[in-house]
Design a protein around this nucleic acid. Structure first.
Lengths: 145, 145
DNA sequence: GTTAAATAGGACTGTACAGGTTCTATATAG
DNA sequence: CTATATAGAACCTGTACAGTCCTATTTAAC
């Protein structure tokens, strides 16, 4: 569990295809074919990614989508945030007052810590890393007290 | 997003209560009250946690639940796995043949890496850490290439 | 100017699963 | 024997994810 949504997975797929030749303009139709996704799904995602600033869109004939930045500067954290909204492992991580047990809850700061570790892990992996043949160099370390 | 389920959150709540006085026997009813959870929910979770080996149960009158191990030896990863099943950020992380795009998918190993980072983060935080006043000492590090 | 090709944005739908309840069976202390 | 526990399964229900479709709007090309 702790699974990302399928849509996020698809979005990553689309973006990695584009990352192989950045600056090129891709149509929704073409990308859907390459990624083997239904056109409506790909189109919906591309629109979303454009709205969220990860892609730049060009309307009209011969239009399409281009990566808004170099693949190195697009992190998995950004992709996930674009598709699924802000990262929040627990409800209380979203803000005050969401959870009614807030006052007596000693576990909250620790959840936040786990959430933070996850955030860092996601930020450390870029789109460029995702197309690289070798695994991205991220490692977790446990500090002794 | 990437949220844990409410049930996992509740389970953590119950377990942290128990961790404050390990070796003590807790009834489902008492724990439900302390944690301010509906009795059916608490009961269901406690049964599950017992089945998964995190708790030891004692049936009959004056029965109840005890932590199966010291709080230091119960990790958040174990709690999450008990309630939600094996950690899998993407579908393909569960095993071969689940995802039909498997052959041409270059992103898979990188997802696995992210999943692994998450796993380590969750393993590094114990139940004992969750009741401690200070945040647990976990840190992520990015290695240079 | 018209047409074709593309994105923008929203509405709509089905369905799988989390979240929660209830019931019956079984064990055990007193 | 009875009261008090847990064990386990079946069941219901709301909601959010996944996916489709329809109607603008923009722009290149002829």
């Amino acid at each position: 569990m702790l699974r990302i949504s399928k849509l996020t997975d698809y979005a990553t797929l689309l973006l990695t295809h584009m990352a192989r030749a950045p600056q090129q303009v891709y149509s929704a139709r073409g990308l859907a074919e390459q990624a083997a996704l239904p056109l409506p799904v790909a189109a919906k995602l591309l629109k979303l990614l454009a709205r969220e600033g990860l892609l730049v869109s060009q309307r009209g004939a011969a239009g399409g989508y281009v990566l808004a930045r170099a693949p190195q500067r697009i992190s998995m954290a950004q992709i996930l945030a674009a598709v699924e909204g802000p990262l929040a492992v627990t409800e209380c991580a979203l803000g005050r007052g969401v959870c009614e047990m807030e006052k007596g809850c000693a576990t909250r700061p620790h959840w936040q810590l786990i959430g933070h570790a996850l955030q860092v892990a996601l930020e450390a992996v870029s789109l460029a890393d995702m197309v690289a043949p070798k695994a991205a160099p991220v490692r977790l370390q446990r500090l002794e007290r």
